Simulated scan of single mutants.
Amino acid sequence: MKTLAALLAPALILAAAPIAAQATTLAEAATGKHRSAANIARNAHRHPVETLTFFDIKPTMTVVEISPSAGWYTEVLAPYLKDQGKLYAAGADPQGNDYNKKAVENFKAFLATHPDLYGKVEPTVFAKGNTDGLAPAGTVDAVLTFRNIHNWYMADWAQDAFNAFFKALKPGGTLGIVEHRLPESADDARMKSSGYMKPSAVRAMAEKAGFKYVASSEINANPKDTKDYPKGVWTLPPNYAEKDVDRAKYTAIGESDRFTMKFVKP
C-alpha cells in the first residue's frame, strides 16, 4: 500500500509546476533579493517598473541595454528576460584604455554573482568608432539607454550612436531614452559640459537617424532640480561631485530631472 506522502507527491509536483514556471515580473525583478538595499532605494528616483512599462518591454523581447555600467538596470532586465527573451549588454571596449578594461572586468564579475539570473546576458561592445557590434543588425526589439547620451554628445559621437541603434532594431522596434533634462531656454553650449541635454536636441538626433517619435513621459521628472550646480549634474546624488559640500542640500533635491522618450523604427 502506498503511503500518504507517495499518493500526494504527484499532486504536489503538479501544483508546484505552474509556480516554478511563472516568469519574473518587473516588480519582482526591481525589488528582488538579488538587489542591494541601496539599489532598491534608487527605485524611488529611477522608476524602473514604470519606465520599462512605458517602453512596453515584454519578457519575450530581444533587448539591448546600452552602457550598463555597474548593472543597475541589468539587475531588473536580466531576470525579466531570462526565460523567454534575450538581453545584450552593450558596454565598453575591452581593447580600449585601462579604465574601459577594468569596467568590462567589473561587469563580468557582476554577472557572475548570480549566474541563475545573469547567466544568459550577452556582453557586447559599444564604443566610439565601434558602434556596430552592439547586436546583430535588424534582430532587436528594443534598444534602451539610461542617462548616457550626454557622454556621447560631449565626445562628439552621439549621432553615430543613434544610427547604430536604428541599424540594430527590427522594423517596428523601440528606442527608449532616459536623459538628464536641460531647459530648452538654456544655452546649447551647456550640453557640452553640464551632463544635461535638451529634449529637442535628442529628438532631432533620433529623427535624423530615421526614428519616428512616439511619446514622452514625466515618470522621471524632478522639479526640485535647478540644473545650475558647480559640477553639473554630477553634483547631485548619487555622485555628489562636491563631496560633503552642501551634501544635505543636494540630498534633499534628489537625483536629476530626467525626460523619458519613446521612438520607433518605421
Rank of each mutant, 00 (worst) to 15 (best):
M191E: 07
Y196P: 02
S194D: 04
S193N: 12
G210T: 03
E218M: 13
K208Q: 09
P199R: 10
Y213T: 01
S217W: 01
M191F: 03
E218W: 04
G195E: 05
A215M: 08
A215K: 15
R203N: 12
M191A: 10
K198F: 09
A215W: 04
V214P: 01
A209I: 00
G210L: 07
A221M: 06
S216C: 10
K212W: 02
K192Q: 14
A209Y: 02
A221E: 04
S217A: 15
M191G: 00
R203T: 10
A209T: 03
P223D: 08
G210Y: 03
A201C: 07
G210W: 07
P199I: 04
A209G: 07
S193V: 06
A221I: 04
M191P: 03
A204V: 00
E218I: 03
A201L: 08
I219D: 12
A209N: 02
I219H: 07
N222A: 15
I219F: 02
E207M: 11
G195F: 06
S216E: 15
V202T: 14
A215I: 02
S217G: 12
P223T: 06
N220D: 12
Y213P: 02
G195M: 08
G210K: 02
E218R: 11
K212D: 15
K212S: 15
V202S: 01
M197K: 03
A204N: 07
